[in-house]
Design a protein around this nucleic acid. Structure first.
Length: 674
DNA sequence: TGGCCTCGAGTTCA
DNA sequence: CTCGAGGCCA
């Protein structure tokens, strides 16, 4: 076969697979096959350099390093659109009112095209006779920069349009980085010890401005088309939505999340619907865009001071804000871990006011390079806990000192150590440390442990600071008079605490074990141990080997338990607690009788209409089932209630059986009667 | 030894 | 909820 023909054939085929993979998200051939085609094309092009053209998919891997980008004057200016600033969601109505007034059609329901406002970088793609010839940034709207080389590395942007040989067609859209690609890229960079990206938008913008397109090619970018620039030799559709449909049929990626609606209320509904959807999208958006759908009406409306009168952006509360890092405070946790916490100048971000954010550990601070006094980027998307995403170095005042982790505990003054191969720094003070003692007491009293109602952190602070309580058994020696003398405590509250303490004395072995706060012994492990040994005495006397015979207990956990009961002090605490009346029922260990649901794993998600989570869990466990926290292919059933989240999605993905409450109850009843 | 799969621990705001 | 680390299995 003619080389020329084979090359043309390969290019068409490779681009077809590209389109299927990157635009339609439906791969047509295995990766290995694709690689084979790609390599064949590359080798033919190397043998026949005269046949190499810029629209060949082989150009997607990047090319020569540039010294700079050349300026390009836009044939049609790239304007920005006005942002509707509203407080009470009135933006849609304000826009609609303006449009109708300008058209002098106050009674009409106008047709609008609604779409998403992507948080990326605006780009103009120029196709001549269907071939991508140039890609430019917005720049100042009049003149942008030629970034063609980098844009060609974006796989979902077609180098040749399908079914379109218009003389000139300029496509406008947004280059962005999906959340998944952003996270994956950052994970990879961190694993290599390299700089990570602050957010997807910076990732996209930074990649496009890379002078070395081979580096840009490594950044996973995507594109959505949303409009047109210069057009010659193509009959425009009558509406904006028609334009988008046409662009999509040319092989360009167009976001599916769009709608054509009539009237202001429908715009507001779209705004609301997308707000609900926002967190679940695969990419960041900062709002939605409304456009008058008819191109003729758009022309009639025209522009005011370089902004189209027929389009508006309606934004959502920002998920990112700049603020000043006032201080870094050190918190000491139950295990003695020192956690640096960012004290921020309060900012409104992602729907709430944020003033604290964890900085995790020393390495994290160094990686993000935050100094006290810096202007930082705070990010909070949806239900995600706020985080300091990065520093604005340009705003750093002179002479800021880098943060150093203290070498002694800020609470008790004991030495702190950082274990080798661990990122965390720990206070060595143990229960001598006030912070650890407080946390130990709070953990002991918490709902899943001994369940002492009303014993919160403010009360524990006072009890420890005033030297009323030194160790756990002291809790049970509290009397109403002592408690009532404290701040925000009077007779009634004090009485409630004493009653709650009394109630908590009757417990189970597994709860008691858990409440002691032995390292690596959480709720599940405590249950396993209680089940296996039956008696506390047996656990206290067990050696490493005996402990290892318990399923899910390995060397680290076993050693931790041996160490704990090796301390005289801990044995005394246990004895004292029993002396003041803490009790539970004991048995002879491992009741081997196989229960009906032994070996089955359930996962609960969402809110069930009648059963509480706790209740469902304990009923399942009493029949021998295991109730786990996350779904995997080993999960037997997922029980889903209202507002079930990602666990339900995962269950569907893995084809795990899903039950609702009624089905669960039926199952329990059936199994129980056997 | 590597790759799941769990568990433990720590986290913010209303 | 998410990360890191412990435990188990191939």
């Amino acid at each position: 076969m003619e080389v020329v023909q084979r090359i043309a054939q390969l290019r068409t085929e490779i681009e077809r697979h590209n389109h299927a993979y990157y635009v339609l998200d439906a791969p047509t051939i295995p990766d290995a096959e694709y690689d084979k085609l790609f390599r064949e094309l590359q080798s033919l092009e190397t043998q026949h350099p005269e046949l190499l053209t810029l629209d060949s998919p082989s150009q997607r891997v990047g090319g020569a390093v540039l010294d700079g980008f050349s300026p390009v004057r836009h044939a049609v200016a790239m304007l920005s659109i006005r942002t509707e600033t509203d407080t009470e969601g009135s933006g849609a109505f304000n826009f609609d009112t303006r449009v109708r007034k300008a058209l002098d059609r106050n009674d009409a329901e106008i047709e609008y095209a609604c779409e998403l406002k992507f948080d990326g970088l605006a780009i103009n793609l120029r196709y001549e006779r269907g071939v991508l010839v140039q890609a430019t940034t917005r720049g100042d709207g009049e003149t942008g920069e030629d970034v063609s080389q980098n844009i060609r590395t974006i796989h979902c942007i077609p180098l040749c349009l399908q079914y379109c040989d218009a003389e000139i067609i300029e496509v406008r859209g947004e280059v962005y980085m999906s959340r998944k690609d952003f996270n994956r890229y950052n994970d990879k960079q961190r694993a290599l010890g390299l700089a990570s990206l602050v957010n997807p938008r910076n990732g996209a913008a930074g990649s496009i401005r890379q002078l070395d397109s081979r580096l840009a090619a490594r950044r996973p970018l995507s594109f959505f088309a949303y409009g047109l620039g210069e057009v010659r030799g193509w009959d425009l559709p009558a509406t904006h939505s028609g334009v988008l449909d046409a662009l999509s049929s040319f092989g360009l990626p167009v976001c599916d999340e769009r709608a054509v609606v009539r009237g202001a209320q429908a715009l507001a509904d779209f705004h609301h619907k997308v707000a609900m959807l926002r967190d679940a999208l695969a990419f960041d958006i900062d709002g939605v865009v409304y456009k008058v759908n008819s191109l003729a009406v758009q022309a009639e409306l025209g522009f005011v001071s370089r902004e189209p009168r027929w389009a508006v952006a309606h934004k959502y509360p920002a998920e990112e804000q700049l603020t000043v890092l006032r201080d870094i405070e050190i918190q000491v946790g139950r295990t003695g871990k020192l956690t640096p916490v960012a004290k921020l100048e309060p900012v409104f971000v992602g729907g709430t006011t944020v003033s604290n954010a964890t900085l995790h550990n020393e390495d994290e601070i160094r990686r993000k390079d935050v100094h006290i006094g810096d202007t930082v980027i705070v990010r909070r998307a949806g239900d995600v806990i706020p985080e300091v995403a990065g520093v604005v170095l340009e705003r750093r005042p002179a002479h800021l000192m880098p943060f150093v982790m203290p070498t002694t505990c800020p609470v008790c003054g004991s030495k702190v150590v950082r274990e080798e191969s661990e990122v965390n720094v720990r206070c060595t003070g143990g229960l001598f440390c006030g912070a650890q003692r407080k946390q130990a007491i709070l953990h002991f009293a918490s709902r899943r442990a001994m369940g002492v109602e009303g014993l919160g952190d403010k009360l524990v602070d006072q009890l420890v600071d005033e030297n009323i309580i030194h160790s756990l058994p002291d809790l049970y020696r509290l009397d109403v008079a002592t408690l009532a003398a404290l701040e925000r405590m009077a007779e009634k509250s004090a009485q409630n605490i004493v009653v709650a303490l009394e109630k908590s004395k009757h417990t189970t072995l597994s709860r008691f074990l858990f409440s002691l706060g032995i390292r690596h012994v959480g709720e599940t492990t405590a249950k396993d141990l209680a089940h296996n040994f039956g008696k506390l005495e047996a656990i206290m006397q067990a050696d490493n080997e005996r402990l290892l015979s318990v399923p899910d207990v390995g060397p680290i956990v076993a050693q931790s338990i041996v160490d704990f009961f090796g301390e005289l002090h801990n044995i005394e605490v246990v004895q004292d607690l029993r002396d003041v009346g803490v009790s539970w029922e004991e048995h002879d260990g491992v009741s081997t009788a196989a229960l009906p649901l032994t070996g089955q794993t359930f996962v609960l998600t969402g809110t069930l209409p009648n059963l509480s989570r706790e209740e469902a869990k304990s009923r399942l466990e009493s029949l021998g089932a295991k109730v786990a926290g996350s779904v995997s292919k080993k999960t037997s059933y997922v029980v889903a209630g209202a507002e079930a989240g990602s666990k339900l999605d995962k269950a569907r993905e893995l084809n795990v059986l899903v039950l609702d409450e009624a089905e669960l109850i039926a199952l329990l009843r059936k199994v129980d009667s056997k």
